[in-house]
Amino acid sequence: MTVVSDSLGATYGQARATWEERFGDRVRIRTHRAMSADAPVDLAELYRTHHLQMVRLARLLVDDTASAEDVVQEAFLGMHRNQASLRDSGAAVGYLRQAVVNQARSMLRRRRTVREHLKVAEPDIAPAADSDVLLAEEHQEVLRAVGQLPQRQREVLVLRYWSDMSEAEIAAALGISKGTVKSQASRAMAALTTIMQGGDQ
């Protein structure tokens, strides 16, 4: 009986790994939501299953992989520190994503302040080696335009068009109202259109 159970578990694990690799973050969110809301949050498991996706999300927000990894690590450590207050494993991914967005924002703010206060000791943050030069020209053009948008608008676009989140989910992740999400997205798209047609914002 044990053998059968293990075997089934292994099969399920393999299928799930393939499934998650293929369908990404969106599917995993629903998987977690289907879990018991009272189950304790297994951070090690959360790390294994979501680390890569969160680094990718952070990368879109902070622009270089090393900083993105810092952001995600700090988000996980923050969850670890507050684990006692996390009782809903179904909501853990949402908390994590929110933490990543907040940490990314803090990192960008820190960079700005450090640049102002610590001009000598802090290195100039040049485009990273893993920057967009390897991307197709069409993608580079879009990303350059996105880079000119205000931070909040960038966050909304990334969560909407990469994380495929609904307006309500974005509002929860960013701590703003649904109406603000809608207006920020609308302004962002209008600004992008203008920028990509050759005009300034």
Binding site: R56, L60, T65, D132, L134, L135, L143, W162
Partner: peptide, 10 residues
């Protein structure tokens, strides 16, 4: 497509 391409670099 642009976001996906950039994210896939990681």
């Amino acid at each position: 497509e642009a976001f996906e391409a950039k994210a896939s670099q990681v």
